[in-house]
Write a protein that binds this DNA or RNA. Structure first.
Lengths: 336, 336
DNA sequence: TCAAGCCGTCGAATCGTTTCGATACACATC
DNA sequence: GATGTGTATCGAAACGATTCGACGGCTTGA
């Protein structure tokens, strides 16, 4: 069943059917009604391959994401899918494995599928302005840090201020009287990752309060409970008198908390713990974990909004920086 | 840059380029090398809209899923994406909102995009054999229950035995001496959902051990911590002398555990808790939660495998039922 | 009455592939 | 030298949509 069949059955020309379906050009009301009836009757759906071929553009949006199963991302993906779907577009999701060039992967997809737009989510991008520009379709960087100094007018982005957020968390712990605060995050061998940016905030808070930075208090670990657990175990075994832990994700915090609790220490009695992200599980941990919460759903929502604005012809790139929120639930306490 | 350009630059015919790119037909080694060099030089990627149009079939796989952000699903989705990607196919993900007809949504996508195949993940399907058959492309049902009695030869599926798994968990708690065991799951107003199937197993275990089934011990709640928390609170307030809780998901179990712990009761001292799924967070909860673990990654893997077998021409449908595993970690204890 | 203008419609060309039938050449066979 | 058999290649016709230029018939005003 194709447009030709519909045309024949309706007794009109092919182009008339096309115009009815696309609401373009002029069609008399009677013809329109007639055609729509036939379309409905035969349950006809236009073939998007043909349509996209002719228009040299598809309505598909691609999401390039690092780590689909990360709960914070999963939540954002859900909202991205919902919003994109709401706008009548299919969503293609591609996971970017470590070591894969995200832009190159997206380029391939764009050329192959004539994509409508791309959302990049998570990770650190080592790309120049030209590489971004080569994409040739609208795109938005969501919760992404860039290694190279890219001119902000060359792309749109949605993020939080990682330095400031980590500063906030660390300052909070310091204000509670903590001095030996450790920091758990992932520090790959490159600059300006999320881990490094949060480390900057951590250091800044220490410095401002006259606390010397001790590298032994910083542990490298991936953003998952098992790694947080191991990292916290390593830290505790160093006997540095740690009274507080700040983790760069709730998943890490949960693992770290487990390490603390299973060592017979209490939270927040012996060790205070603050996480990052604001995932639901952290709230239902026992004790409920304090955290720096990111408005993931809004961030996803705005990302899609910006993308479709760009698609609609908006030329000015936008950079939306959301405010993170320190959520106090009871996994930290005052010491003296 | 299209195939015509490549042909012209290489000094060969269009069809020769096509044959080189598709490894079909005969092409001399020298010509092949020459063409491939040009393709590489110009970074040419065939337009899949044109290709799919001509072949009236795309290489795109669609995943229809209920609740992307559910951690158990998120983990499976990750593996599905990886496996599909590995086979060189793009993955389209569509979230199925409550009340939406999954098959109809898939149908639309199939017609529109000439899909290669579809994986349905999660939920309860109220569809007849004919409706499934109408899809017209290979498909696999993963962790899905069906309301209608569909002839098993009409579809492929990957699942665990929900009745047996719930039976296993309940029997375990009974063997530890528990009598007042409550059960938390979602019971929508329809038959044969996952919740209902697990309820069957729960009941069967009770019956076999001569324990009378008490509806007051069963609470309806969605598969998320907040609902588990609320449900457990409700239960505890009934003062039924509950000594054990069996939750139909780890997310529920985490919420329920929180309710128990924050009521001043201990786990497993006062109440034993057993979850379902085997997500990472449950292991790092404190105490680590016992659970019925499903091999999600393998299930995802096998789903993709079956799908591609079907695409490759396999005609026999397969039903793979995985074994669930009772994982004991310390959130249950013996009572007398 | 006729030219001008508008409305509604049509058909043909086009998008970038795949694929089938045709062709051109080299070489062996009789 | 005519015929047959491969091998390597080519061109043209699809696939199913969009869109532009053209056209027929109607109204309108001079």
């Amino acid at each position: 069943m194709n447009i030709k069949d519909i045309a024949k059955i309706s007794g009109v020309g092919i182009s008339t059917v096309s115009r009815v379906l696309n609401n373009s050009g002029v069609v008399s009301d009677t013809t329109r009604a007639k055609v729509l009836a036939i379309v409905k009757q035969y349950n006809y759906v236009p073939n998007s391959n043909a349509r996209n071929l002719k228009k040299t553009q598809s309505n598909t949006i691609a999401l390039m994401v690092k780590g689909i199963s990360n709960p914070f991302f999963a939540n954002m993906i859900k909202e991205v899918e919902r919003q994109v779907h709401l706008r009548g577009c299919p969503l293609m999701i591609q996971q970017v494995e470590d070591g894969v060039d995200e832009i190159a992967a997206a380029m391939q997809l764009i050329r192959e599928k004539n994509l409508y737009g791309v959302i990049f989510m998570g990770g650190t991008y080592d790309h120049s302005e030209e590489e971004f520009n080569q994409l040739g379709v609208p795109f938005v960087l969501t919760t992404i840090t860039t290694m190279k100094d890219v001119d902000p007018s060359a792309f749109s982005s949605v993020s939080i201020d990682d330095v400031q957020s980590a500063y906030k968390a660390t300052s909070y712990l310091i204000s509670l009287g903590h001095r030996n605060i450790c920091f758990l995050a992932r520090f790959p061998f490159m600059a300006n990752t999320i881990g490094n940016r949060r480390l900057l905030g951590y250091k800044k808070a220490l410095e401002e309060h006259g606390i010397e930075y001790d590298p032994a208090l910083v542990e490298d670990c991936e953003y998952a409970p098992s790694f947080g657990f191991a990292a916290a175990k390593r830290l505790l075994s160093k006997n540095l008198g740690v009274t507080a832990m700040f983790a760069a994700s709730d998943a890490i915090a949960i693992g770290a908390a487990k390490a603390v609790l299973s060592s017979g220490l209490s939270i927040p009695g012996d060790v205070s713990v603050v996480g990052f992200d604001g995932i639901e599980m952290a709230e239902y941990y026992h004790p409920s974990l304090d955290t720096i919460s990111q408005p993931g759903v809004e961030m996803a929502h705005v990302s899609v909004e910006i993308l479709f604005d760009l698609i609609a012809g908006e030329t000015a790139n936008r950079h939306v920086v959301f405010e993170s929120m320190l959520v106090k639930r009871g996994s930290s306490r005052k010491v003296n």
